[in-house]
Design a protein around this nucleic acid. Structure first.
Lengths: 195, 195
DNA sequence: TGTACATCAGTGAACGCGCGTTCACTGATGTAC
DNA sequence: TGTACATCAGTGAACGCGCGTTCACTGATGTAC
């Protein structure tokens, strides 16, 4: 019927507040005020506060995962693949740091309740690593551990940025971070082969 | 006066519950029940729930930081230094995963309010990196970024373990993780020098 | 060795407030005739 | 083009429950004399 942009305002306000104070630190009243509507109106868009947080998280999570997976399709070679994903992530982060702060804060509450198989960002990285192994570019590695190394390097850098330990945009550092990620995975593979 | 082990029981129960459900997901009543005392008695040990979480976190955080710093004192060479710290961390994690789950969950609530300069785990890693640079073992790097890489590799591995993505003890993987961390830092330094 | 007293970790009931959720309602928009 | 009606995003007040915190109290332990 009516098609105002209220839902978009609510979503934006909620993500911003969740990022700043955590889901539990934000009340329905806070979100309603920030979005410029009454508390009751929120329940026209979400059945509960938990559902709101979960839905906002899941959407961002799946979209990020899908984008990372799409990048893999176009690249040939492990290094290019990782470089592409790291660059993409850094760009996303620079464009909307609050969204990633929200995701980092909320992941532990929400992730266990999400069916993330395949659609998750981790899956995209694991696919890249598994592909490199079967292409003979990379020795055998514990794939999960290698994925952890790649994700850890990038996410911890983003975290340091959120805390002001690292300043300025992340994107210019993407090549360096990608090199670090690749080197880390190769070092893991070297170790595994030896053992 | 009396010296029962009640405080220890409270601390243990609180960390266990906080790790499982997050600080906000646990009530004072929960903790009291788990510790086998009344709610009121909790306030003989902590002035508030927030102070309890903050104090438990700060203690573990500082102790971990101090232990990592101590390791640095005994090692010569960057690689040995990093290996020592990674191994130590993996050992701590294996010994008490709940404590680290608590720390990972609570860090965003508590860290901003803690005076962590110098005593934090990050500081120990940064010291190791800075030392390697001034010893000529390592090219110039953005120290914070290099520290992020090292922490990220180890912490994300621990996180994957908490989520069941990686199973079995972490300690046997410490050498591989340390190699990955060293390779990552060296790759960052290579990039920096080139630029 | 007794006795009186201070201390303090414990109890358990009560308080009160903040918060998520509900509900009767309003009024604007789209649709059927 | 009007008129009657269904729909539904909005309002704002009220509800009620869970939770952190308080408080008067108890009784065991350590200490002074």
């Amino acid at each position: 019927v009516r098609a105002t942009g209220v839902k978009a305002k609510v979503d934006h306000a909620a993500i911003e507040l969740f990022a700043a104070r955590g889901v539990d630190g934000v009340s329905i009243a806070d979100i309603a005020t920030a979005a410029g509507i009454s508390q009751g109106a929120l329940y026209r868009h979400y059945r509960s506060k938990d559902e709101m947080a979960a839905q906002l998280f899941a959407e961002a999570y799946r979209r990020t995962g899908a984008e990372l997976a799409a990048i893999g399709a176009g690249k040939q070679g492990f290094a290019a693949h990782i470089r592409g994903m790291v660059e993409h992530f850094c760009g996303l982060y620079d464009a909307d740091p609050a969204l990633f702060r929200f995701m980092l804060l909320a992941q532990h509450d929400v992730l266990p309740e999400i069916d993330d198989s395949g659609s998750a960002p981790v899956a995209a990285i694991e696919t890249a690593i598994a592909g490199a192994i079967s292409a003979g570019e990379l020795g055998a590695v514990e794939i999960e551990l290698a994925a952890a190394a790649v994700m850890g390097i990038v996410l911890q850098s983003a975290l340091f940025h959120l805390y002001g330990r690292v300043t300025g945009p992340l994107l210019p550092r993407a090549p360096a971070l990608a090199r670090a990620a690749i080197a880390a995975v190769e070092a893991l593979a070297r170790g595994q082969t030896r053992a």
